[in-house]
């Protein structure tokens, strides 16, 4: 009797808990293991896009079962479930299955990207802008270019919406000095090409351009094919990670000279004024070659 009573009470509570508890969410992941960290119980996976969760990218994941971290090896192809805890504050991999071990030892696991150094030339990477037109990263010769990375669904006010708001302020200020304005260009690149199609980018851009489409002449909103985005991320050493059920990325702003060389990176702290000053300075500075020539003619 006593044990039945306890059983009954437990059952009632179990049912209440089951009725009130909202389940965690699960997403299917497929990809290749690039690295593992036994101490942190993590594996880094280069994964395909996870519908409803995030685009294809490489990032570290916590693993529920430490034994699995022992078992998998870099190069392995895996299928797994990403479990996002209720509330979205935590996530991890469960039910990891190794689907192919053939990559072990034979697959050269790529080293983490090394960003282009200051002074290096930007690569030719094709992007697709808000009009569906192909533009090239090295197509802004003669203009100082300020480049940043976003995705339009990014909800964190201190991340993408802030970057775009700051770019909007810079754009408005530049427009007041037409001489300098003409020698500058802004470029906002989304790394969520599946959602951020040309029409979505156009709508996003217009919201930051006071609905004036003529602003696109000086400010492109672009995305690219996944392979090109990967090249872009590698070129600028972007690190993607994931936080609170959102795509997060190392924030980066890159200033590129009219000679198409990297001038400066900002990754943690900056002000709108600082960015604008640097862009103006670069746009109006005589190129070193011009200066050398001028010096030589004396």
């Amino acid at each position: 009797m006593g044990s039945r009573k306890i059983f009954g009470v437990c059952l009632v509570f179990a049912c209440i808990i089951a009725a009130c508890k909202h389940g965690s969410r699960r997403y299917q992941l497929r990809g290749q293991v690039l690295d593992k960290n036994l101490a942190k119980n993590e594996i880094t996976v280069d994964h395909e896009s996870i519908p409803g969760f995030m685009p294809a990218m490489t990032m570290p994941y916590k693993v529920k079962d430490p034994a699995v971290v022992q078992e998998v090896e870099p190069g392995d192809k895996i299928a797994a479930e990403v479990v996002v805890a209720e509330g979205g504050n935590d996530n991890w991999l469960e039910n990891i299955r190794i689907t192919a071990k053939s990559g072990r030892n034979t697959t050269k696991v790529p080293a983490p990207p090394k960003a282009l150094a200051v002074g290096e030339r930007v690569p030719n990477i094709s992007l697709i802008n808000q009009d569906g037109k192909t533009i090239h990263l090295d197509g802004f010769k003669g203009k100082a270019l300020l480049l940043t990375f976003i995705y339009t669904r990014c909800p964190m006010p201190n991340f993408c919406p802030r970057l775009s708001s700051q770019f909007a302020k810079i754009h408005e200020d530049l427009a007041k000095t037409p001489g300098t304005y003409a020698k500058t260009h802004l470029l906002t690149v989304s790394f969520d090409p599946k959602y951020d199609t040309a029409p979505v980018l156009r709508r996003y851009g217009l919201a930051y351009l006071n609905n004036d489409a003529s602003g696109f002449a000086q400010w492109d909103f672009a995305s690219a094919a996944p392979a090109d985005l990967r090249k872009l991320a590698d070129a600028f050493g972007l690190v993607y990670f994931e936080q609170d059920n959102q795509i997060a990325h190392s924030m980066d702003i890159v200033l590129i000279s009219p000679q198409e060389k990297i001038v400066k990176y900002w990754a943690t702290e900056w002000t709108t004024a600082e960015l604008e000053d640097a862009l103006r300075t670069e746009a109006t500075a005589k190129s070193t070659r011009q200066m050398a020539r001028a010096g030589g003619m004396k």
Binding site: P51, G52, F53, T152, R153, C154, P155, C160, P161, S164, S165, Y195, A207, Y208, N245, Q246
Partner: peptide
Amino acid sequence: GTMPSFQGR
């Protein structure tokens, strides 16, 4: 406007 979409999330 500048409020992000929550589609898919």
